[in-house]
């Protein structure tokens, strides 16, 4: 679980993104990062809370009308600066933020290493952005098309946002399993894990469905499925009150967490059991399996 927020429009992106990250901090708080498009594609990231991050970037260039930010809850790779999001692609033309788990990242990573990619982090996320770039270069398609093709190859759950230095008027988002809300303002667009970073700017939102890729390109939103079917986004009005937001509408975190259990229990089994095939594999214990099996009777 992580928090993601992104902005493309006429305002400065950084203040919107940071405020959004503070709202989303309940979704993860072990590291934070921001990417901004301003001729360059600048990435800043830091282990720690959002407050640590804002101190860290206080002397950096934070200009840009397109940006995205991430607050992390580590799943692959411990929380440190290197593993924090956003992650660059090989050429640094693309950057990604990701909430979720790419289950088959190890196999894809090996293939990419074989074709010359080098990785800077231990994350599954960095593998995904390298894969997107690899596909983009091989098939000479637009970034959103490369994203769509790449997502066809991965197994797992994700909510992602991708920015490209060479296509500065474009922002791409996709989801499967992890939530994405697109906020639709006048000549500006917001993307976030939930509506809390968006609510003070616009009440018009579209929730992406599983397996959908949204592209905002020169002020126009298009949505496609991973199977390349065009969808008309369903725009609805938010009924969210600002004070309810960090707790996702519940009065207390405890109640929210009680209600998250169908999902959290599933998350603790995901990728570990396959009942159809009668398989169970708890990665961590495999190496010490014999110790466990032969533990003193």
């Amino acid at each position: 679980m992580c928090g993601i927020v992104a902005y493309i429009g006429y305002r400065q992106a950084y203040p919107i993104v940071i405020k959004g990250l503070q709202r989303l901090e309940y979704r993860g708080y072990d590291s934070a990062g921001v990417a901004l498009l301003n001729g360059e594609l600048s990435v800043y990231k830091k282990a720690g809370k959002v407050a640590d991050f804002t101190n860290y970037v206080s002397d950096k260039n934070l200009v840009g009308q397109v940006g995205m930010g991430h607050t992390r809850w580590a799943t692959h790779g411990e929380p440190n600066d290197r593993n924090a999001h956003p992650h660059y692609s090989e050429s640094k033309d693309l950057a990604i933020i990701h909430n979720g788990i790419i289950e088959n990242y190890a196999a894809i990573k090996q293939e990419l290493i074989n074709s010359g990619h080098t990785f800077k982090s231990d994350t599954d996320t960095e593998v995904l952005i390298h894969l997107i770039e690899e596909i983009k270069h091989k098939t000479h398609v637009a970034t959103e098309e490369a994203v769509r093709l790449a997502l066809g190859e991965v197994i797992g759950a994700y909510a992602i946002v991708v920015l490209s230095k060479s296509e500065p008027n474009k922002m791409i988002a996709a989801r499967k399993g992890s939530p994405i809300v697109v906020g639709i303002g006048k000549d500006e667009w917001f993307i976030a894990s939930d509506a809390t970073p968006i609510v003070e700017y616009t009440k018009n939102v579209a929730y992406l469905n599983d397996g959908e890729v949204a592209t905002i390109d020169n002020g126009k939103l298009t949505v496609k499925t991973i199977d390349n079917e065009t969808k008309i986004p369903f725009v609805q009005e938010l009924e969210l009150k600002l004070e309810a937001i960090e707790k996702g509408g519940y009065d207390h975190f405890m109640m929210k967490e009680i209600y998250e259990q169908p999902r959290s229990i599933w998350d603790s089994m995901r990728g570990r059991i396959d009942a159809d095939k009668g398989r169970l594999r708890l990665g961590g214990i495999s190496e010490f399996e014999n110790k466990l099996i032969n533990a003193k009777e």
Partner: peptide, 15 residues
């Protein structure tokens, strides 16, 4: 093995 329950903020443990 990690439990992957996501961040738990309530002090009384549930998920």
């Amino acid at each position: 093995s990690y439990t992957h329950a996501g961040p738990e903020i309530g002090v009384a443990s549930t998920k």
